[in-house]
Design a protein around this nucleic acid. Structure first.
Lengths: 239, 239
DNA sequence: CGTCGGGTTGAGTCCATTCAACTTCGGTGG
DNA sequence: CCACCGAAGTTGAATGGACTCAACCCGACG
């Protein structure tokens, strides 16, 4: 049941059976959320962290004028709010973008892991560090890439991340975001978002229909995006 | 000598003398860098992490077309590349923006801390989590705030962060960035950066000369920025 | 069969960029 | 001492990218 989590952590380093057992032991109950629902709401002080088992979720902030910005996308195997374990207060919300199944890990039990299992602690820490690395890549994309390149980069990133947790199908994957939601990922207006998607389609590097993205030309897409997966740290080595 | 670090960590939770000793013990040699020099270069695999003692530094990435984007600013008391302890490979560079004094913490000794000092480990982890929170705030600013609001937000953030480590002087602080560098923080052209600064000056909320920023109207500035410091987790509580 | 949410397209406006000139100021050498 | 130089800051004008407003299409669903 925690396969995705093991795949996620396991991409960076070997995870022992004992460690898997510790993780499993930290989990309490499962829950389902439907699209649009908050897994965690902004301003709350959760006493557990949320592991995505199935579905797509996103962190977001809302401004006074109603503008919304997604700050990350969370795929199966991701701890959506592991950072709240130490940050305590949620300064943003996390919502389901597709029907989600999640399982909760009690902070109290995570704390025990930090007291007793240093290597596993480092792996969890690392997990949040990769999170940060992704944020930095997004900042670069927002600041200095063309909008087309930004979108291309996002597609590359999602494809690679989903592949790790076996959620791709050949060169295709599900991307259950409306164009309005995507616009709130890239920081664009809906209309312009539509045109940027159109541009990528026109170059012929991706096809995009019914919330399924198919990469038609990976090399070209990667080139457009200047995508270099180093930042995802997908190398198995002692940590 | 590690005062800034203690102030930085200490803003989130109590740091014991034993823990301070452990930190001090993790440090090896000191070094100075001049503006423009890389503290850490992209693509390297450092075996130590870099603590800023004095000066301002920044993480950055450079694109093929020569475009540069800063992804964070590091002030005294910040571990510029603590994430490299577990991420291993630097996917970005870190450069000095002003004359910097730094001290290096051996990864081997940080590892010992994770094996023997769980609470201190959590504090270091937390430090990287705040980093992530700042990244998220930057993403929001880049995506959904006006450029003026973005700049205002940056000023608020820097002021608060510098205040923690006692690097403010009343409502003033040093900001040794050229407008070109600032432009690479906000993702703007230099010319427009200049106009945005002009706009903020014109409203009368800040004065800005000789690399010294003075906040003339904090409330108004905070309002323009929609600045809410929650994300910096500046609350002392058990972690 | 009508409605509604999402996607698509066109037109006009505004914001940000580029290119280019000009100023200011600190430093340096004649 | 001052003339010159280069780096940083400032300003204007023209271009182009992104936004808004508005219309229209389409498939799902009642």
């Amino acid at each position: 049941m925690l396969q995705s989590l093991y795949l996620n952590l396991g991409q960076h380093d070997f995870v022992s059976d004992a460690e898997k057992a510790l993780l499993a032991g930290a989990m309490s109950f499962e829950r389902a959320f439907s699209p649009g629902q908050d897994l965690v709401s902004a301003g709350s002080r959760p006493t557990y962290s949320t592991l995505i088992l199935e579905g797509l979720a996103a962190r977001y902030k809302v401004l006074e004028d109603g503008g919304r910005q997604f700050t990350s996308l969370q795929v199966p195997g991701d701890f959506a709010d592991l950072h709240a374990f130490l940050l305590k207060n949620m300064d943003h919300g996390i919502m389901a973008l597709s029907p989600c199944r999640v399982i909760f890990a009690e902070h109290a039990r995570l704390r025990v892991i930090t007291e007793q299992a240093p290597h596993l602690t480092r792996l969890l820490w690392l997990n949040t560090l990769v999170d940060g690395a992704i944020h930095r890549e997004w900042i670069v994309a927002m600041g200095r890439r063309s909008k087309t390149a930004h979108l291309a980069h996002l597609i590359c990133e999602l494809f690679v991340r989903l592949q790790v947790v076996k959620r791709t199908n050949g060169m295709s994957f599900e991307l259950p975001l409306s164009q309005a939601e995507l616009a709130d990922v890239l920081g664009l207006s809906v209309v312009h978002m539509n045109r940027v998607i159109g541009a990528l389609r026109k170059v012929g590097v991706v096809s995009w229909a019914n919330h399924v993205v198919t990469i038609l030309n990976w090399d070209r897409l990667q080139e457009i995006a200047e995508f270099d997966p180093t930042y995802l740290s997908m190398v198995r080595e002692p940590r």
